Amino acid sequence: MSDDEKALKKQLAKLKRVASETAGEIHDIVEDTLWSQYDRLPELGTLLAAQCKEALEFEKANGL
């Protein structure tokens, strides 16, 4: 595996990690603070969708 490919895979892993962190934040709200923070869910949902799309597009564009 070339250094360029390793760098691309590392970048993809970072994009997926960021999306997973957002998903975790949504999970925490649902589990712990739904009634006091429910108003954050639409924004976080939109953010998560954008992050997933970015990761999938990156993966496709780079043949990973």
Rank of each mutant, 00 (worst) to 15 (best):
K6R: 15
S36G: 05
L64A: 04
K9Q: 12
G45D: 08
N62I: 04
L56M: 12
Q51V: 02
A23Q: 11
S2Q: 09
M1W: 10
Q51C: 02
K9M: 07
Q51R: 12
R17E: 14
S20K: 10
G45E: 11
I29T: 00
A55T: 01
M1Q: 10
K60W: 08
G63W: 04
E59C: 02
E54R: 11
T33F: 08
E59F: 03
L44H: 02
A7H: 03
K6T: 01
E31Y: 10
H27I: 07
D4Q: 15
Q51G: 03
L15I: 02
S36C: 08
S20M: 11
W35S: 13
L15F: 08
L56F: 08
K60E: 09
T46R: 11
L64C: 03
D3A: 13
A50P: 02
T46I: 12
R17I: 03
D3C: 01
I29C: 05
K14P: 03
A49Y: 06
R40I: 04
L34G: 05
S2L: 05
D32A: 06
N62R: 06
D28T: 08
L8D: 01
A49N: 12
I29V: 08
V30Y: 13
R17M: 08
W35Q: 15
T22A: 04
L8T: 03
K14H: 11
D28Q: 10
Q11C: 00
V18H: 06
L41V: 01
D39R: 10
R40D: 12
A55M: 01
L8M: 08
T33W: 06
D39L: 07
K10Y: 08
K14V: 12
A49I: 06
P42S: 06
D32I: 01
A50V: 05
K53T: 15
A23H: 00
I26K: 05
Q11Y: 03
K6A: 13
V30R: 15
C52L: 15
E59M: 07
Q51N: 07
G45I: 05
L64G: 01
E5S: 10
L15Q: 01
G45R: 08
E5Q: 14
K9H: 09
D3T: 11
S20L: 07
A61P: 03
R17A: 15
G63Q: 07
Q11M: 06
